[in-house]
């Protein structure tokens, strides 16, 4: 966990001795923070404890009750044998599908965005500002406005309902924000470095590979995190473009919860929800500050 306070010039505005705050105000402050923390933590806690209960216990007890006899049975069922519609294979193959979508989408969009950002920020490209603005406007338009024509176009070239199709659409919608991140980062590099490389006679890709790329580790991590969470958490694009054989976990999860055969098995539902939530959650916990930078990247001046 590494959420250190990296804000520059950080200054605590309270009186250093604490005199600026009365005791009552301090108590109020802590009460507010504690209640807020509970508000954020409780849903996760409820999901977790429900997923460790048996179906009878879920129906009998309250949502806040701790499981009397914690068991991973619901997790096992959610993973391997819960029914989605008539198929009872759990959401395990959704994980594999998610990975199959995730890996090429992330690699492609980060790589293209890095090159784009490099070209737009460090080279003389006519109308670079307009290009970036046009790209970013695309990021703000709801998918719904573009979705039907894209389906038709993809069907035309034969990639609708395939892995390729869903990867292309993820790259398409991932590019704007990732390009913005790389552009902003490369703009902040000292221009003398690139000038020196030019004087030394290095070309476009050589400068990128030998000078720019080695300095990009941090921004690449941020971009990968952003792309990872975006693709993994996507539901709508995969539902429409991936085709029946490639449905990722989020889609399977929602179908599983929506499947009503007999009594609803809340413990299995919650276990499945947690399984789907776990990869980005783990990424969040281990990447700490990078994650914060990734999700707040939009706030960086564009």
């Amino acid at each position: 966990m590494s959420f250190t306070d990296t804000r520059t010039g950080y200054h605590r505005p309270e009186a250093p001795t604490g005199r600026g705050w009365g005791t009552a105000a301090r108590v109020g402050l802590w009460a507010f923070l504690a209640i807020s923390a509970l508000f954020f933590a409780i849903p996760l806690f409820v999901m977790l404890s429900t997923s460790l209960k048996t179906a009878e216990e879920v129906r009998g007890g309250s949502v806040f009750a701790l499981p009397t006899d914690p068991s991973l049975a619901a997790w096992g069922k959610a993973w391997g044998s819960a029914c989605i519609g008539r198929v009872c294979e759990g959401i395990s193959n959704g994980l594999w599908n998610s990975v199959k979508i995730l890996v090429p989408s992330t690699i492609l969009s980060v790589a293209i965005a890095a090159i784009n950002g490099y070209a737009l920020s460090l080279w003389r490209v006519p109308y670079a500002g307009l290009l970036l603005a046009g790209l970013l406007l695309g990021a703000f338009i709801p998918f719904q406005v573009m979705i039907y024509p894209l389906v038709r176009m993809f069907a035309q070239v034969g990639i609708y309902g395939s892995l390729t199709g869903v990867v292309v659409v993820h790259v398409l919608f991932g590019l704007p924000i990732l390009t913005l991140i790389f552009t902003n980062f490369y703009r902040s590099l000292p221009p003398e470095l690139m000038k020196a490389a030019r004087v030394d006679g290095a070309g476009f890709f050589r400068i990128f590979r030998r000078i720019v790329l080695p300095m990009s580790a941090n921004v690449i991590i941020v971009a990968v995190i952003l792309s990872f969470t975006g693709v993994w958490n996507d539901y709508l694009l995969a539902l429409i473009f991936a085709g029946r054989d490639n449905l990722p976990m989020t889609v399977q999860l929602n179908s599983l919860v929506g499947t009503r055969i007999g009594l609803p098995e809340y413990n299995v539902n919650m276990a499945a929800t947690l399984i789907a939530a776990l990869p980005p959650l783990i990424l969040y916990l281990i990447s700490g500050q990078y994650f914060v930078r990734g999700v707040t990247a939009g706030a960086v001046k564009g």
Binding site: N233, T250, T273, A276, P280
Partner: peptide
């Protein structure tokens, strides 16, 4: 942490 989760979850 909720921001890491999908709207589905």
């Amino acid at each position: 942490y909720p921001i890491a989760l999908s709207f589905i979850v």
